[in-house]
Amino acid sequence: MLALVIERLAVSFAGLSSPVLAIDHLTIAAGERIAITGGSGSGKSTFINIATGLEKATSGKVFWNGADIANLSESRRDRWRAEHVGLVMQDFHLFPGLSAVENVLLPARLARVADAALVARAHELLKIVGLSRPEQKIETMSRGEMQRVAIARALLRKPGVLVADEPTASLDADAGENVGRLLIDMADEAGSTLIVVSHDHRLIGRLDRRITLAAGRIAADSAVEGVAA
């Protein structure tokens, strides 16, 4: 379980006058379940990329359980992410030609950490997300099934934080509902902090806290409002 503290963060890109993301201070407690919302271009994906170490901050600090990942080299950040972060994206990023279980295991295998226990866990996770055929080729699956495979993959190494960027946006209402519930249940079960970017009100409603971004800044935070109120 991981806690996040962000201090004086700024992310700018060359050619843009104002930073894409600017957060003075933000704290997310371990095990919290956060929804991040905001209009298109408000900086949600950028926030996710910074928090997971996919992108490097221009300035500022990003502490996970006290360790600043903004300082790490690219390879170290990769390794840190592999160990601590489970990612689920809008486009599932599964690999055609491989089966469901091979997809779940692929990153672990490439990192040479896939032992028998992890293989067993992969099969079990697929069962939990409701897929009975682990050897089914990924390209023959429905979109809802694919996203469930992606969730199983994200949870394989029991990450301290589960991060999802619009996980239900490309699914129909039923499949979206299903996937949303799975995410929350499984983060609970694994004891992971959960950060979900979403426009899906039913999903947002189920989460503890809602942070709204606008033009790269925190426009509203339900926790802060709660305290203020």
Partner: peptide, 9 residues
């Protein structure tokens, strides 16, 4: 995606 999901560089 490979790297995002934890494959080493």
């Amino acid at each position: 995606a490979l790297r995002a999901f934890g494959a080493p560089r």
